[in-house]
Design a binder for these strands. Structure first.
Length: 300
DNA sequence: TCAAACCTGTAG
DNA sequence: CTACAGGTTTGA
């Protein structure tokens, strides 16, 4: 579940690895993945100019003022791969499914994209760590969305995951004002991408644990002093997570390797285990589809 | 402000 | 087989 540190890692990896690359052709294997105003093939022939991040959104810049915005949602990921060669498999969309095994030498030359690949950019002027020629967008649950647009349209098209100011760039006073103006639970506000972009369940859970603040407190009940503590925890946790290339859980993967911040998780995924601060059992509460883990003793 | 829908792999 | 994971959109 890519959040800010994972999106940052992906953007940095792509920025470095794709320098000098140009799009030779594109493939869209699952139509709903593409949501923007332009076609994926509008990137054909464009030179890669850089990758960046806003909130949880990864942004690739191409020549001619073209942009590829990626909202990774739950399972979206960019990985390098080999474009299929030889006989193209017919059909493609529709029934789709029946994903065959990874193409391998000696499989009678009929290669296909690996399973769960929804879109791909075949590149020239690029060779991956293993000689790959393509950037694949793989997305098991099909929640992810790609937007191709002009740079001038970017602001309007940015997915919700990048609407608010970056949580790492928000000033303490502004952070406090945003909390003070909402009666929603503080954890809900931390994950509200319109209020501040970048946090999902994992890091919001960790930040509130570190700050010693109950996730259920109404945001408007947070004092200025507590607000500062939360923001400081956010800075420290996100900074360290970026240094460690994000958290590798479930099937998250960055183009140039996994992250290791999951080793630092103190609350997320630890329900039923003793609180690392006070030893009391961490509790799990589920509300409207979201699970939160917290220590009822030291988070007030 | 809240629930359902979108998805599929994994764990029970 | 059912429950669960969960960011975001959409509709009540």
């Amino acid at each position: 579940m890519p959040e800010l540190p994972e999106a940052q890692t992906i953007a940095s990896d792509l920025d470095r690895a794709l320098a000098g690359a140009r799009v030779k052709s594109t493939e869209l294997l699952y139509r709903p993945t593409l949501a923007g105003p332009l076609a994926l093939s509008d990137l054909d022939g464009s030179a890669f100019e850089g990758a960046s991040r806003r909130g949880k959104c990864v942004i690739l810049a191409f020549g001619g003022g073209l942009r590829l915005l990626a909202s990774l949602r739950m399972t979206g990921q960019f990985v390098f791969g080999h474009s299929p060669v030889g006989a193209a498999s017919p059909g493609g969309a529709g029934a789709g499914g029946a994903g065959e095994a990874e193409p391998r030498a000696g499989s009678r030359g009929k290669r296909v994209w690996p399973p769960h690949v929804r879109a791909a950019l075949v590149l020239e002027g690029f060779s991956g760590p293993d000689g790959e020629d393509s950037l694949m967008f793989r997305d098991i649950r099909k929640f992810g969305r790609l937007f191709v647009c002009r740079a001038s349209e970017e602001e309007f098209l940015l997915p919700a995951s990048a609407k608010g100011p970056d949580v790492t760039a928000i000033a303490p006073g502004e952070f406090y004002r945003r909390l003070a103006s909402s009666k929603a639970p503080v954890k809900t506000l931390l994950m509200d991408q319109a209020a501040m972009a970048g946090l999902g369940n994992i890091y919001a859970t960790e930040i509130l644990f570190e700050a010693g603040i109950s996730p259920f407190r109404p945001a408007s009940s947070i004092a200025r002093e507590e607000s500062d503590i939360i923001l400081k925890a956010a800075g420290e946790i996100l900074g360290e997570a970026v240094r460690m290339r994000g958290s590798t859980i479930s099937n998250y993967q960055a183009p140039l390797g996994p992250g290791s911040y999951q080793q630092r998780h103190r609350a997320y995924g630890k329900a039923g285990r003793p609180c690392p601060r006070c030893g009391r059992t961490l509790e799990k509460v589920r509300s409207s589809g979201r699970t939160t883990v917290y220590c009822p003793n030291c988070q007030r």
